[in-house]
Design a protein around this nucleic acid. Structure first.
Lengths: 197, 197, 197, 197
DNA sequence: TATGAATGAGTCTTCATTCAT
DNA sequence: CATGAATGAAGACTCATTCAT
């Protein structure tokens, strides 16, 4: 078996195990049992238990950050109206979160309690998303869709919070959420929320 | 020293210790050192390390649930306009969260990673809050402040998410947040978000 | 309450507790709960947990050693025939053991596992009993009831063992044993066992 | 080192340690020091301190129960006379007990004080032996060696008690007991004890 | 690379005993 | 004498990590 393959195998087993019993409730013994691999093999591919978890976190963050539907074709975006932009964005984001819900749950429920490092990483990640969102809002302001006196900074956080909560409430652990409904409520609420008048 | 007093003392020390190094990073030795009590004394008041943490979580949830400004004078509420109701509510809630930010942080950052029981407890808590919020929204619908076609259920979650994120971003670990600014942005956003038109 | 009374009260509670859960399975907390006495009071009357147990053991050994039916009226004994002597002795001994079966059980089942001191005490006690028995056998030899070539020393041990086993099997923990039957079998067996022919 | 070998090594060390200081006086630290293994290694082979002890008890009981000289050649037995049967049996039994005197002492002196479970086990064991003995007595009755009116049940206990006492008094902790003497006294006593007239 | 036996530092928890009131 | 809160030494057990094969 190729080195990368074996690594994947362990990573998958770790995800399963961690999802089942959490980081501290999962022992290396559980991971290797799940993977069907010897103890030594585990340490051949990962430096430590913490290390596997970090790898999963990294992967999760990569997945999240790679979701950039709105950035792909800026020119086209200008033509699209605000509603469509939001709808597309949120559909992609929520869809991605749901698709990788096990990883997401790990990140949101476990990572904080393990390490200050993970907290930092997560905060940075939120910062990046916050920037993207505020950029979008600024763009909406330019287009006259968002009012000028909006507190962009705080509003960006509000948008983040809404998504996070929808994810936690409707996406983790559920097989088939009613994505369109969530997106619709979210878009309607946000568009009005940022609108003038 | 009275029994209850000693218990309080240990609880305070535990809060400090847990806040500093997290649940798993904190040893009973740290707690008793912080409290200045003997090991046996700790176990005279709490069954286990897990038990002290649970006591802190319970306390936190009690504090959160006891925040019910809007419920106190229903008659007056009817006269008040929606904006004032929201402003008052959020001011109280965010203020309370900030006042007890150490406890809150413990609940939000640590509790999930320890025990499925805590996760359940937290979910139940969110359910209660969700109910309160949807009740308020329904009230706003009656009053014509919120549109009829609003997805109340999902919107309730959105409101919850906004508060949670503000708390995490601006209230935990900060001495003096700009509360009015947060409330203003929140109220303005939500009022528009739920409005017709 | 008189000092001696209080001591008795604790002793009785300790016997109950030890009988229930054994020496190591019983904590001072159990004893004082059973006695309805405060922790400090316990140590006012006994130096340690070990000390109470020792007091119970002492009491048990005193009871056992005070059983001396055959010694009371040596002149009369000479007239009685061997069978009656044995029957009387064993009836008294087995009766006493049964009457104090809780104490006896403590001595036989627990004392050995606690302390080399108790083992020594018990061995000395057996030695005393062994001497009494061999004296009786010697007396029987004089009277011609026991054969001359009997290995008195070893036979004394055999008699001891028979009684011990009957006690363990039929007397501990039973409310009403068939004492006459045991005595009859024992006497018949022993008389023949030591007899010539 | 093979798994079974290492287990044996620890078992031997535990026997030594327990024999020296008793169950409660022996710490896992003592056992591993005696065995020259690390703490973790101990728990790799045994679930707990209680578990090693149980393993030793099991082994002891197996050894005791496997002593069945009289069962091997029933046909021959019928021809042999009672005295020889008893002499052989007791020689083997007492010899085996002496050979494994450390294990036996553990069983008889320690096991009772640890656990009700061990008491049960020991009682069952005595029951088995009692059955064997009564069977032999019944056989002797058939052969006319034992009287018909014998209380077989109780007499079986008497025989058990004699052996137990000899074991405790002459076999535990002694290097070279005078086995023939013990057997002779025992056989002579028992044969007469069960005899008619 | 793979294996799994071995390691031992780390922690929680217990419980007999003390002592201030 | 009585109380019961406080003490802290002691000890069982865990589990991430190493390493010889």
């Amino acid at each position: 078996m190729q080195r990368a393959e074996r690594r994947e195998q362990i990573l998958a087993a770790a995800l399963k195990a961690f999802s089942r019993t959490g980081y501290h409730g999962t022992h290396v013994a559980d991971v290797i049992a799940e993977a069907g691999v010897a103890r030594g093999t585990f340490y051949l591919h990962f430096q430590s238990k913490h290390d596997v978890f970090a790898a999963l976190v990294d992967r999760t963050l990569e997945i999240l950050l790679s979701v950039r539907p709105e950035a792909e074709e800026p020119v086209v975006r200008r033509r699209a109206d605000a509603e469509q932009i939001l709808r597309d964005s949120y559909t992609t984001v929520l869809g991605t979160i749901h698709k990788h819900r096990q990883l997401m749950r790990l990140l949101f429920d476990e990572a904080l309690g393990i390490d200050k490092g993970f907290r930092k990483q997560l905060e940075q990640h939120f910062t990046v998303w916050h920037q993207r969102i505020t950029a979008t809002i600024a763009f909406f302001q330019e287009r006259g869709v968002a009012r000028e006196d909006l507190d962009v900074e705080v509003t960006g956080q509000l948008a983040l919070g809404m998504v996070e909560r929808l994810a936690r409430r409707y996406l983790f652990g559920v097989r088939s959420p009613d994505l369109p409904r969530l997106v619709e409520a979210l878009v309607a609420f946000e568009l009005r929320g940022i609108a003038g008048r």
